[in-house]
């Protein structure tokens, strides 16, 4: 079986994987990182979103071997070692942006990338469009949108510019 080395949540791993093993399977089954979920088999739901070299990707849509040498961050790797939550996690809690919690890891990972990719501001419309790849069946998205809007100033350390509202 092919060898793979990668870094996950700051820890390096060298593992053997089958060629067909998906990144999400590696994370959940080999590395025991079950925070990343699988909600579909057609790359539609976003429950599996993680960051690979800083960008969000659907880990059900990438072979593990494609992550050779990459640095992967999963939901488990977001909080600081002392347990302090990432501002996005904090805002999800504050705004009741999760109910059953199943879509949440993927939602949070997508949301962080979305905010990072919009340094000049982020409108509600852009948030809703930006969540195109993530399904939530519980919340109706209302509070997820609120949480992401609230995380923007915390992550960028400034207020949302008026024009972006």
């Amino acid at each position: 079986m092919p060898q793979l080395s990668l870094t996950v949540n700051g820890k390096s791993h060298a593992v053997e994987v089958e060629g067909r093993t998906l990144l999400v399977e590696l994370l959940r089954e080999k590395l025991g990182l079950t925070g990343t979920h699988i909600g579909c088999d057609t790359s539609q739901c976003g429950a599996c979103v993680v960051h690979v070299d800083g960008r969000s990707i659907k880990s059900c849509t990438m072979l593990a071997l494609q992550a050779e040498g990459a640095s992967v961050t999963t939901i488990e790797g977001l909080a600081k070692p002392d347990g302090t939550l990432h501002p996005m996690q904090e805002m999800f809690r504050e705004h009741h942006a999760l109910q059953c919690g199943f879509c949440t890891p993927g939602m949070v990972m997508s949301a962080i990338d979305l905010v990072q990719m919009h340094p000049d501001g982020l409108t509600e419309h852009e948030i809703r469009e930006g969540l195109e790849g993530n399904l939530c069946r519980c919340t109706g998205y209302h509070n997820i949108v609120k949480a992401i809007a609230a995380a923007w100033p915390l992550m960028h350390g400034k207020q949302v510019p008026a024009a972006a509202e």
């Binding site: 959940r28 999963t74 488990e76 996690q89 999800f92 009741h96 949440t104 949070v108």
Partner: peptide, 19 residues
């Protein structure tokens, strides 16, 4: 009140059957 259960879900420490 903010939810007590959110801490584990947000940290990826939920315990679903497939986990």
């Amino acid at each position: 009140v903010r939810r007590k259960e959110d801490g584990r879900f947000l940290a990826g420490r939920g315990n679903y059957v497939d986990d």
